[in-house]
Amino acid sequence: MNCLMNKLITPIRIGLLSLLLMLSTSFVATANDEPSPEIPEGIVKLSKVDPARNVGFLMGDILDRTITLEVKKPYKLIETTLPIVGYEHRYKGQVSGIELRKISHSTKENRDTTTYVIQIAYQVFTTAPVVKPAILPAEVVKFEGPATEEAKDGLVQYKIPEFYFRISPMAVFGAVKIEDDMSPLRQPILLQPYPEKQKLVACLVVLGLSLLGLLYILGSRAWLPLMGRPFAQASRQLRKLSAKDPEQLKTALSSLHKAINTTAKYSVFSDNMAVFLAHAPSFKSIESELNEFFALSHQVFFDTQSTAIHDKNTLAWLKKFCKQCRDCERGLKPAKQKKA
């Protein structure tokens, strides 16, 4: 029987609790939304700390207010009537651009009064081409006190006075033609990314230098297309040689053989010189000098009966021959020279 009674009573309890919750919610909602009579004079003593200045605020600036309300008992602040974070004041349906960023409060009970200290921080989210008046809105908070003729439910309200200030423009003088730019919807002027630009330029310089280095490496370590070619290198080597040392004639001949082979991309001998000339026609103009060079090379390297041919003239001839070859590899017309 008890069990049956419990089963019947439990839904009734849940129903009653729900009804009470609904009533209390509607009471709070009513207390928050509907205007109430003003609190009688002398009940609230206000003291406030506003921003030190009321001009020169830019977009993003935060304005702090400290409101201290000393309220005589039995009036008590209804905390749910305090404004909430993110609340944005509207004027004639238009957002004002001042948004509540942070709010906190503390309560101190005295013998006859209760002191409420409310810290409010607003942030500016608007700007204009000219100085713009703005306002930290008058916040309305409600108190619960004894029922009177005016306030039969005991609810009264108090209006915290507003704070007037000026929002300064972010535009530089002369940078904006105000007559053409009066739209309130104009987006805020962006900050100039100077440091980022500098970093970007530095990165581009490094990239450019790297590419130059890569080109230098890919171009067989020559800055220009005609630089550092085989005969140019051989010419530099031959310039250092002296006629005093007989071995240096062999060095000169070897350098020139190497340059010819590098140019042809295979070993060139007198028996395949025709193939070389067919692939490098610019050397045709010095065919007789090439034949002379190979004859000299044969004499120096392969002829056991050859007499000493090392002299100043031979090395000088080789140096001139090398310059002729260098001209040929550069596509220039080489100067003719006398026989060695």
């Binding site: 062999k250 070897s254 053989h257 190497k258 082979n261 295979y266 070993s267 001998f269 090379s297 390297f301």
Partner: peptide
């Protein structure tokens, strides 16, 4: 081989 080996 003839093309690859140089002399001198």
């Amino acid at each position: 081989i003839v093309n690859a080996v140089a002399a001198p």
